[in-house]
């Protein structure tokens, strides 16, 4: 047990080392683009107000009526913040696929070495899985840091007359994207994390199916994805199947959903274990 945990730690650290360049790029990109947004969006707003006041000889009050107050939420709800988040999500999704295929299609066939390590092959699987999650949480954390840095910047650029007084936490709460990304409501966040973990397990399983059965594997993989999706979405069809929209309470549907997701996750782990131990081909 201690030996396999040690191997997991070593492999996770090794995988993280390989991810680090990509991760640091995404972190840097997030910080730089966000910073540009924290400066550009409030400045544009102030410029618009100043221009309006000069051109129309208007008072601050009239400018306020036309443009409204500027809040940190306005800065958050811009390309400068949403963009890097989208890039981060897409990047990690891409990396989740890349993390396996690079072992086969890289310049050297590292899959040979990895699969011949005298450690349980599932250790490889878990190390890759953990690293993706470390990547996701690092990006979430850097986004948090960025918001804490950005709030005083925006507040400094927007003069008090035109500021809405919305606090940092209120602005974060108001943005639907952060409800998914940040642990604002712990239970809800846990549901999102569970769903994400199951999605990743299914994706890894599909990759292993393809790596085990090649072209035929693509079709089996699509089938596995469809089956997983059907199982997870099944509760949504229950009202129609049972001809009653109120047969289950929302809390029960969520629990059923969590159970089904767990079942899909565990099945994926077993399928993956079987494939990586018996079917995978270098």
């Amino acid at each position: 047990m201690k030996k396999s945990l040690n191997a997991l730690l070593k492999l996770t650290s090794f995988e993280l080392d390989r991810l680090s360049k990509f991760l640091f790029t995404l972190m840097g990109l997030t910080l730089v683009i966000n910073l540009a947004g924290y400066i550009y969006t409030p400045m544009r707003h102030m410029n618009k107000i100043n221009q309006f006041m000069t051109e129309n000889s208007a008072t601050a009050e009239e400018a306020l009526q036309t443009f409204g107050r500027f809040s940190f939420y306005n800065a958050l709800n811009s390309f400068w913040i949403v963009g890097p988040i989208v890039i981060g999500i897409t990047g990690m999704l891409f990396y989740s696929v890349f993390i396996w295929y690079r072992e086969w299609f890289g310049k050297n066939t590292f899959a040979y070495r990895l699969l011949m390590l005298p450690v349980s092959r599932m250790t490889l699987f878990f190390s890759k899985f953990i690293v993706i999650f470390i990547g996701i949480f690092t990006l979430i954390s850097i986004q948090m840091v960025s918001l804490f840095v950005g709030y005083p910047i925006v507040s400094a650029i927007i003069s008090d007359t035109y500021a809405s007084g919305l606090s940092l936490m209120e602005a974060i709460h108001a943005h639907p994207l952060f409800l998914f990304l940040f642990p604002l409501q712990p239970s809800y966040f846990m549901v999102i994390i569970t769903a994400g973990a199951v999605m990743l397990l299914v994706l890894f399983t599909i990759i292993l199916i393809e790596r085990s059965f090649s072209v035929r594997g693509i079709f089996i993989g699509i089938g596995y994805a469809a089956l997983s999706l059907a199982i997870v979405l099944f509760p949504l069809f229950l009202p129609n199947l049972l001809k009653n929209n109120y047969l289950f309470y929302s809390s029960e549907l969520l629990i059923i959903e969590l159970i089904l997701m767990t079942v899909v996750g565990i099945c994926s782990l077993f399928v993956s274990r079987y494939l990586i131990n018996n079917k995978i081909t270098v």
Binding site: K107, N108, T109, Y112, L117, P118
Partner: peptide, 19 residues
């Protein structure tokens, strides 16, 4: 089994470590 990789070594004809 994976433990036997400590007993049998394989030297393939392609590079297998990271470049």
């Amino acid at each position: 089994t994976t433990e036997l990789y400590n007993k049998v070594a394989f030297i393939p004809d392609v590079a297998i470590m990271l470049p």
